[in-house]
Write a protein that binds this DNA or RNA. Structure first.
Length: 579
RNA sequence: GCUGGCGUAGCUCAACGGCAGAGCAGCUGAUUUGUAAUCAGCAGGUUGGGGGUUCGAAUCCCUCCGCCAGCUCCA
């Protein structure tokens, strides 16, 4: 079964790779001056990069697609050819393809493979379909810039994205999925549901304003976080948003990240808007001499930080310039490292579980540029590995992907559409304990260097909320829903009874609203439904007479003749079980 | 930051060199209604900002700001 799946995937890759060659052929037919970059299959389709004015491509996308259809009709065979590097060089020199020449020079073999279809030839490992006629259901999606070989200093090429399938059904399904993802867009839902908004002109880009509904959700999540941190032996601290730049000189951030920090002068003193919480927490650690008996020390803060992110990367709540981390720093003995990491792993996965998110774990090891000794990296990396092993968790290793100051574990959250988002992280830091000279007195009475762990268990509250909106399509479970119940009247006659119900529900601490407007019931239901409110209580003549409730659930299901007591019990059950 | 697309009423969009418009939302009134849109009226705009071309600019040109897709980045 699994093997079949794999084969199907491979076939799809071949199809898409072949489609990308057809795309390149079409572009070369229409724009012979275009230089070819690369054109691989990717997760949901394929792309091809061209060195040509992107405007020409985006204005002619439909023409390019038509030409691709012609090529399909011509049913040109894909012909594989094995040639010497010299021969290949001749071919692409003649065709004036500098990027292909660059690729040839980097191939380690003395032979390379080419694929031809009609007048078109490409340097390519393959494999491909038998002929262009086998490609049937494809579409071109967008044009975007991309640096040659993904390096910022390189020329910017124009990339056409597209996708291709074996059946029309699959293509339609994919296009529908794109629509579906659009519907879940947290920026759109965030606005519609009164959760948050961004005012680039007045307030500035990348700075979110939480409206009442969003603030309630945040508050519930934050209270939950605080409770859970207390249970796990964390202590709370609060550190200021601005501080003298001296702090950031010692930490090294000012030297490395000045461009990304908000630095300003007041009264001849240079100040910095904090981009991280760690130096503040370090002040607490340093405030007195620490004994090994004090360790581990776990300091927690819902710390709001500001980073000057590049304008092109901002994205709703998922990438902001001001955001709040559920940030903690653990100061511990080397011998405590494994257990502390295990504790954080348990904690993070408990959070994923609570919010019904899947996850994927990655361990990132020493990069090329690093500080600290090789030995300490090895010890720390082994400790992270051992912690993962003892928790029985699967993980992938990302070689060389660690931060310059230490190895780390990243947990990506998987949402309802199977998309992955950056979530909790656990990082060991060799840098700051040195820079701030963080020590403890050991049992032998010696001064020793403390081990420092940075960790977040949701990541940032902002991003987490954004992911949650997309994951749930805005349908927050009862414990998080900004409005848990809305009472709807049918005519004005029911207002006194509805008000009574509303007051009773409200006095139980449940977030309830009363819609007693002079509108049709179906209209009120529609509005509540669009607001994704979990429970609607419909109050009409029947309910007023028999004093029992009719409850419409968000999924359209109706509960008839339910007593107020039972309804309240049901909601409280939802809340306590975090449903 | 880079490449391309885009910016018109609170929202979704039309007008594309010749009087700035529609639907929804809002307000007012009528209607008293049983499970996803009752009817009518009213109001709503420096067409992102600045500059230019033109008898005339939402529309064409320049520039700045911002948004979207992607690339790069993410301590």
């Amino acid at each position: 079964m699994e093997k079949l799946e794999k084969e199907k995937l491979d076939k799809l890759e071949i199809l898409r790779h072949s489609t990308s060659h057809i795309l390149a052929q079409a572009v070369k037919r229409i724009f012979p001056q275009a230089k070819l970059g690369i054109g691989p299959p990717i997760k949901d389709g394929f792309y091809y990069d061209f060195d040509i004015d992107g405007e020409l491509l985006s204005k002619n996308l439909s023409r390019i697609k038509e030409e691709m259809e012609n090529i399909v009709k011509q049913d040109l065979p894909f012909q594989k050819e094995k040639v010497s590097k010299e021969k290949a060089r001749e071919i692409f020199e003649e065709r004036n393809e500098p990027y292909k020449l660059e690729l040839i020079d980097e191939i380690d073999d003395s032979y390379v493979t080419l694929y031809r279809q009609g007048e078109f030839v490409d340097l390519c490992r393959g494999p491909h379909l038998k002929s262009t006629g086998e490609v049937k259901f494809f579409t071109l999606l967008s044009v975007a810039g991309a640096y040659w070989r993904g390096k910022e200093g390189n020329p910017m090429l124009s990339r056409i994205y597209g996708t291709s399938f074996f059946t029309k059904k699959e293509l339609d399904k994919y296009l529908k999925q794109l629509e579906e993802a659009k519907k879940r867009d947290h920026r759109k839902l965030g606005k519609e549901l009164g959760i948050f908004d961004i005012y680039p002109d007045y307030l500035g880009p990348g700075l979110a304003v939480y409206h009442p509904n969003g603030s309630i959700i945040r508050d519930i999540i934050e209270r939950f976080e605080k409770e859970e941190h207390l249970k796990r032996g964390y202590q709370f601290v609060v550190t200021p948003h601005i501080s003298r730049s001296h702090l950031w000189k010692v930490s090294g951030h000012l030297d490395f990240y000045r461009e990304n920090m908000y630095v300003f002068s007041v009264g001849g003193q240079e100040y910095v808007l904090k981009p991280m919480n760690c130096p503040g927490h370090i002040m607490v650690y340093k405030s007195k001499q620490r004994s090994y008996r004090d360790l581990p020390l776990r300091l927690f803060e819902l710390g709001t930080v500001y980073r000057r992110e590049e304008s092109g990367v901002l994205h709703g709540l998922l990438r902001l310039r001001g955001f709040t981390q559920d940030d903690a720093h653990i100061f511990c003995l080397p011998s405590q490292l494994i257990d502390e990491v295990r504790g954080v792993l348990k904690f993070a996965l408990f959070m994923m579980d609570t919010f019904k998110l899947g996850y994927k774990i990655t361990l990132s090891t020493r990069p090329v540029k690093y500080i600290g000794s090789e030995k300490s990296w090895e010890v720390a990396t082994d400790a992270l590995k051992e912690a993962l092993r003892r928790e029985g968790l699967d993980f992938e290793i990302a070689p060389g992907e660690g931060a310059f100051y230490g190895p780390k574990i990243d947990i990506q959250m998987e949402d309802a559409l199977g998309r992955l988002w950056q979530g909790p992280t656990i990082q060991v830091d060799f840098n700051l304990p040195e820079r701030f000279d963080l020590t403890y007195i050991s049992a032998e009475g010696e001064k020793k260097r403390v081990v420092m762990i940075h960790r977040v268990v949701l990541g940032t509250i902002d991003r987490f909320l954004g992911v949650l909106i997309e994951h749930l399509e805005g349908k927050f479970p009862v414990w998080l829903a900004p409005v848990q119940v809305r009472v709807l009247t049918i005519t004005d006659k029911e207002i006194p009874f509805a008000k009574d119900i509303y007051e009773k529900i409200k006095s139980e601490g449940i977030r309830v609203e009363l819609d007693s407007r002079n509108e049709m019931l179906s209209y009120k239901i529609r509005e509540s439904q669009l607001q994704k409110i979990p429970y609607m209580v419909v109050v009409g003549k029947r309910e007023t007479e028999n004093k029992l409730l009719t409850v419409r659930k968000r999924n359209g299901e109706n509960l008839k003749n339910i007593s107020l007591e039972n309804f309240l019990k049901m909601i409280k059950e939802d809340i306590s079980r975090k449903k």
